[in-house]
């Protein structure tokens, strides 16, 4: 049995009498522990796909199955790391993670265990030192680290990352990508990441799902990235299979599915 199965999913948005087909016949199977990236031009519906897996958006047809059970509402077993971090500004870093931990593990764990678990996850993203700061007092990269800690702290079956590094500068993004790789190696989480960054997709993923342009976006191609882990950013620059994978994604995006409307 597959871990996560996206089975013939369609998504239509209806506004008055006008119907827009966003996603058409999406089929994808993801195994436990896999790191899968979804890449495509903006507006192709990749965020909609992530929201469907998260349960935040209902499907129009088809189904999403996690361990054989249908998913149709949001829940902590499919934690989301949002693009704009979505930390609650009135809570400290610690309390933001605590909100999630207390809700998810309020019954199973004692108060001390929950505290240890919160600090463990903050340390995992190297944010333990800022536990008493509010989101407004830390940098964008740090906020995203806390967002990741909050996601991980729910012990999700799948961690969904919606363009997690999109709003960050290149250097911060590289550090966070390294962190995510280490976390993935250490914990073996199943992760699905939306991105529009080709290098990021190749560096982090086991498989890259390439979406065609909307409306009625489909999965155009799925690329297996056969690179050994742990991956080192600098070693890969000249690696032949890295270059080949990168080229394949670029060709898909810029030759076969060029985004015509993009200015």
């Amino acid at each position: 049995m597959s871990y996560l199965k996206i089975d013939h999913v369609d998504k239509r948005f209806q506004r008055g009498s006008a119907t827009t087909d966003v996603l058409k016949d999406i089929n994808l199977v993801i195994e436990k522990g896999e790191y899968v990236s979804v890449i495509g031009h903006s507006g192709c519906g990749k965020s909609t796909l992530l929201n469907i897996i998260a349960g935040l958006t209902p499907v129009s047809a088809g189904a999403v199955l996690l361990e054989g059970k249908e998913v149709n509402s949001p829940g902590p077993e499919r934690a989301v790391v949002f693009q704009n971090h979505s930390l609650l500004p009135w809570l400290t870093v610690y309390d933001n993670v605590a909100l999630a931990v207390n809700k998810v593990f309020g019954r199973q764990k004692s108060k001390a265990e929950r505290h240890d678990w919160i600090m463990h996850n903050l340390d995992l993203v190297q944010m333990g030192h800022a536990r008493d700061k509010r989101p407004a007092e830390i940098s964008g990269g740090m906020k995203q680290r806390v967002g990741i800690a909050r996601g991980l702290a729910m012990e999700p079956k799948i961690l969904l990352l919606d363009e997690p590094f999109g709003a960050l500068d290149a250097l911060t993004r590289a550090h966070l990508q390294d962190s995510i790789m280490q976390i993935h190696a250490a914990l073996g989480n199943t992760m699905i990441m939306i991105t529009h960054d080709v290098d990021e997709a190749v560096l982090l993923s086991d498989r890259i799902v390439m979406m065609t342009n909307g409306p009625s976006a489909r999965i155009g191609e799925v690329l297996d990235v056969r690179l050994e882990r742990p991956r080192k950013r600098l070693d890969l620059v000249a690696d032949r299979s890295y270059i080949a994978a990168r080229e394949a994604v670029l060709k898909f995006l810029y030759e076969r599915h060029r985004f015509v409307e993009a200015a």
Partner: peptide, 25 residues
């Protein structure tokens, strides 16, 4: 909407949502 999404993912109930998201926000 982001805060509502967070609340949905955490499955906060109505009372928790009121005190933890609504009132502070």
């Amino acid at each position: 909407q982001d805060y509502r999404n967070v609340a949905q993912v955490l499955r906060l109930n109505q009372i928790e949502f009121f005190f933890k998201i609504m009132v502070p926000s």
